[in-house]
Amino acid sequence: MADVYHALDDETRRLVLDELAASDGKTLFEICSLLTTRHGLGLTRQAISQHLGVLEAAGLVVTERRGRSKFHYFNPGPLAEITRRWPVDERTDR
C-alpha cells in the first residue's frame, strides 16, 4: 500500500491518472501530448515513462502491448483497497 501512496504523492502522476481515468488505453505519445496541451507540462517522454513506471509498480496502471505500441490503462483496484481498509461511516457528531 505504501507504493500507492508514493505514486499518488506526485502531481504529475495524479494528472496521468486523471487522463487515463477519463479515457483509457493511451500510448506514451498520447499521454505526453495531453499533459502538454491540457496541463502545460513540458516534461520529456523519458520523464513521463518513469512516472508511468511508478504508477505501474503501484498497480494503478496496467499495460498491454499490441505490436510496437504499449497501451496504458487506469486500474482503480488499489484505490478501492484503501477505501476498504478505512471505511467511512456517516458521522453524527458534526
Rank of each mutant, 00 (worst) to 15 (best):
F71Q: 04
K26G: 02
R68F: 08
K26C: 02
E56T: 14
T92N: 11
T27P: 01
D18R: 13
R91D: 13
T37C: 01
V54R: 03
E81S: 12
L35D: 02
A80K: 12
T92H: 10
G40L: 05
D89A: 13
R94H: 08
T63Y: 03
A21L: 09
A47S: 14
L79R: 09
L43S: 07
C32S: 15
R84E: 15
R13I: 04
P87H: 10
G59E: 10
R68Y: 14
H6T: 14
D93V: 08
A21S: 10
R65L: 06
A58N: 07
L35Q: 03
L43K: 06
G53D: 05
D93C: 02
T83Q: 08
F29L: 07
L34P: 00
V54S: 08
S33F: 09
I48N: 06
R94V: 05
V16D: 03
Q46A: 11
T12D: 04
V16K: 01
H39K: 10
P87Q: 10
T12V: 15
R85L: 14
G42M: 03
A22S: 06
S49I: 02
S49W: 04
A2V: 12
C32H: 13
L8V: 11
T92E: 15
L41N: 03
Q46W: 07
R84M: 07
D89I: 04
R66K: 13
T83A: 15
G25A: 09
D18A: 09
L15H: 10
Y73E: 08
I31H: 08
D18P: 00
L35E: 01
E56A: 13
G25F: 00
F71A: 01
T27A: 05
R13D: 00
A57C: 01
T63S: 15
R65T: 14
L34T: 12
Y73H: 14
L8W: 04
R84S: 12
M1H: 13
K70C: 07
T63E: 08
H51M: 01
D93T: 07
R91Y: 09
D93W: 12
I48T: 08
A47D: 09
R68E: 10
G40A: 10
E81V: 06
E56H: 13
R13A: 03
L60T: 06
E64V: 12
A22T: 09
A21D: 09
W86C: 06
G77D: 13
P78D: 10
S33K: 13
A58C: 07
M1L: 12
R45K: 12
V62Q: 13
F74W: 14
G67V: 08
E81C: 00
V88W: 07
I48E: 04
L41Q: 05
L52E: 03
V4I: 14
E11T: 07
L17F: 00
T27F: 00
N75G: 02
P87R: 13
F71V: 03
A22V: 09
C32W: 00
E30T: 02
